[in-house]
């Protein structure tokens, strides 16, 4: 399993890639493996304000449904429309084409609460 060093991670198995005041959010390779085949991703409306740790969407796999939790607070800038047609992209490329939302960060101090790759790996026992 792959956990890129340039990403930040949550205990709920999301990743965040920070670029200035913009963050891209997805789920980790571990999470997609545990969920199995993803068949639908429900994402928020653009402009919606989200708070760190709150659910911003849901992800349906064949076996079960899970909430998606925001790693940080902010407002939704963009959602990955491609996932409507090809939700399986989340399984195939969780850190790339399988991204879910882009968010404008409202509180940069929250970043320090996130895990780095090695801490996340320790969390999942890798």
């Amino acid at each position: 399993m792959n956990f890129p060093a340039d990403l930040k991670y949550t205990k709920d198995h999301e990743w965040l890639k920070v670029d200035g005041d913009t963050g891209t959010i997805g789920i980790t390779d571990y999470a997609q493996g545990e969920l199995g085949d993803v068949v639908f991703v429900e994402l928020p409306a653009i402009g919606k304000a989200v708070k760190a740790h709150d659910s911003f969407g849901t992800i349906e796999a064949v076996k079960a449904v899970s909430d998606l939790y925001a790693p940080v607070s902010g407002s939704i800038l963009e959602v990955n429309k491609e996932l409507e047609k090809s939700p399986e992209t989340v399984n195939k490329d969780p850190y790339g084409a399988g991204w879910m939302v882009k968010i404008k960060l409202s509180n940069a101090s929250e970043l320090s609460e996130l895990l780095d790759a090695s801490a996340y790996k320790a969390l999942i026992g890798q």
């Binding site: 199995g36 085949d37 068949v39 064949v62 076996k63 399986e88 399984n91």
Partner: peptide, 9 residues
């Protein structure tokens, strides 16, 4: 075993 490659496949 709950799955090998993936449930849909």
């Amino acid at each position: 075993p709950v799955q090998y490659g993936g449930i849909i496949e």
